[in-house]
C-alpha cells in the first residue's frame, strides 16, 4: 500500500507492506524502487514501512530545501506518529547515513539497527576521499564501482516515460542537495556514533567501490558491539544485487538474537 501522510507540515509518501515486527527501511540515494524484490522479501517477515525521502517519488522537499538533519527528525517524528516500538531500523547508502543520525539522537523506538554500506562519516585525512565522487565520474565508471555486475545497475533511459525520467532527475537533485558539501558526510557524526546503543549489523557488498569494506570497518569500530557481514557478488547495493542474501542475513541478525 502506498499513501501520503503529513508530518511536521510536510507531505511524505510511504510504502507499507506486510505484518509483524515493524521495520523502517530508509532507501539509498538511488531511490526506493518499490517494484524491486527486496521490500516484498522483507514484508514476508516484517511490517515494512518505507518512505520516499523528501525530493524523491511524490515526497516534496522540506521547505524547498532541507538537510540530512531534517530527514533524521522527520523520521523520528514518523516513528512516533506510527507508534513504533522495538522496530528494526534499516538504512542503505544515504538511508544508512540518515539512520545513524536518527540513532545518535534517539534510539528509543528501535531495537536493532542495520546499516547497508552507509554514507555519512569521514575517516581519513583531509586530502583523502572516503566516498567515491559519484558526481564526477562517467556513467560507465559509476556502474563499474557501484555494482558487482554492471548490468544489474544499467538503466535504459531511452525506454522510460517522461514521468519516470523526471522522478529520477528529481531524486538526483535531492541527493546532491543532501550530500554536496561536505561530500556525503557530516563531519561531526563520527564523534557521536558511540550513542548508538542498539545491536548493530553492518552489511557490505564485497565488490563495493563507492565505500569499500575498509570504510565499513571504520563504522564498526565506532559502534559498540557492531559486527560487519560482507555479502559476495554484491557492490554498493547488496539489497539490490543480492536481495535474498540481504534479507536472509538481515533476518538472521534481527531474529536470531531476538529479545
Amino acid at each position: 500500500m502506498t499513501r501520503t501522510i503529513a508530518l511536521a507540515g510536510t507531505p511524505l509518501e510511504l510504502v507499507e507492506r506486510g505484518q509483524g515486527r515493524p521495520l523502517l527501511f530508509l532507501h539509498a540515494g538511488e531511490g526506493l524502487a518499490p517494484e524491486r524484490p527486496w521490500l516484498d522479501l522483507l514484508s514476508r517477515r516484517y511490517r515494512v514501512i518505507a518512505p520516499c525521502h523528501p525530493g524523491y517519488g511524490n515526497s516534496p522537499l522540506i521547505d524547498g530545501g532541507g538537510s540530512v538533519d531534517d530527514l533524521a527528525y522527520l523520521y523520528l517524528d514518523l516513528a512516533a506518529e506510527l507508534g513504533l516500538d522495538g522496530a528494526v531500523l534499516v538504512g542503505a547508502d544515504l538511508g544508512g547515513w540518515i539512520a545513524a543520525e536518527m540513532m545518535v539522537r534517539s534510539s528509543a523506538r528501535f531495537s536493532r539497527l542495520v546499516l547497508t554500506a552507509p554514507l555519512g562519516i569521514k575517516l581519513r585525512g583531509r586530502d583523502e576521499r572516503d566516498i567515491a565522487d559519484i558526481h564526477a565520474m562517467t556513467p560507465a565508471e559509476y556502474l563499474r564501482l557501484a555494482w558487482a555486475d554492471a548490468r544489474n545497475g544499467d538503466v535504459d533511459y531511452t525506454a522510460l516515460p517522461d514521468s519516470e525520467l523526471a522522478a529520477i532527475v528529481r531524486g538526483r537533485e535531492a541527493f546532491a542537495l543532501y550530500g554536496w558539501k561536505p561530500y556525503m558526510h557530516n563531519p561531526r557524526l563520527k564523534r557521536w556514533l558511540h550513542r548508538i546503543d542498539r545491536p548493530t549489523l553492518l552489511l557490505w557488498g564485497a565488490a563495493d567501490g563507492i565505500v569499500t569494506p575498509f570504510y565499513g570497518e571504520g563504522w564498526r569500530q565506532e559502534i559498540a558491539g557492531a559486527r560487519i557481514d560482507v555479502i559476495p557478488d554484491a557492490g554498493h547495493f547488496p539489497h539490490w544485487e543480492q536481495p535474498e542474501e540481504f534479507v536472509q542475513r538481515l533476518s538472521a541478525f534481527v531474529d536470531g538474537r531476538n529479545d
Partner: peptide, 13 residues
C-alpha cells in the same frame, strides 16, 4: 560547479 564546489541543487535560491 566543480571548481567552486557550490551545491547545484539549490543554486537558484
Amino acid at each position: 560547479i566543480a571548481p567552486a564546489n557550490s551545491n547545484p541543487a539549490n543554486l537558484m535560491r
